[in-house]
């Protein structure tokens, strides 16, 4: 094995190990949130944003609510939330299947299973 090949091997091992480790941390974190909250924080935010949009309080954050997206998106999220959380979760698996690499999709399967679980605002 040449020095170049060895270097490439080390680089590959480092990158793959780092990514897998990072994703493992992500999975543990997400599992903690899901067990604690049962559903995606993003979902609750979307429901609340759609409700607040006509009230003029879209950006009045109050833990755990926090909306950061463009304001014109809030009514669209209202339509989305009307479709139901099951559709939202299924859409994540469809997105997973559409990724350009199947191994990448497999790597992201666990985070996706939580259904776009997000993190609450500052507690």
């Amino acid at each position: 094995m040449s020095a170049g090949q060895a270097l490439a091997l080390v680089r590959r091992a480092f990158i793959v190990a780092a990514v897998v480790l990072a994703l493992a941390v992500n999975v543990v974190g997400l599992a903690t949130i899901v067990i604690d909250h049962q559903r995606a924080f993003d979902w609750d935010n979307y429901v609340e944003a759609a409700r607040r949009f006509p009230l003029g309080t879209l950006y009045d954050w109050q833990y755990p609510y926090g909306y950061h997206y463009a304001p014109q998106l809030a009514p669209v999220l209202g339509v989305l939330t009307a479709a139901g959380i099951t559709i939202w979760r299924l859409a994540h698996f469809v997105a997973l299947a559409l990724l350009p690499s199947r191994k990448l999709a497999l790597l992201l399967l666990s985070p996706t299973r939580s259904g776009s679980t997000s993190t609450p605002a500052t507690s």
Binding site: A18, G29, L104, T119
Partner: peptide
């Protein structure tokens, strides 16, 4: 935030135009 770590997955996606990628970035990654 924890779920943002998903973006690390971009390290595993190769740009179609190899000239656009950094010179040292090989298929090994």
């Amino acid at each position: 935030l924890p779920y943002w770590v998903q973006m690390l997955g971009l390290e595993l996606v190769r740009p179609r135009d190899e000239r656009a990628a950094a010179p040292y970035r090989s298929a090994a990654t």
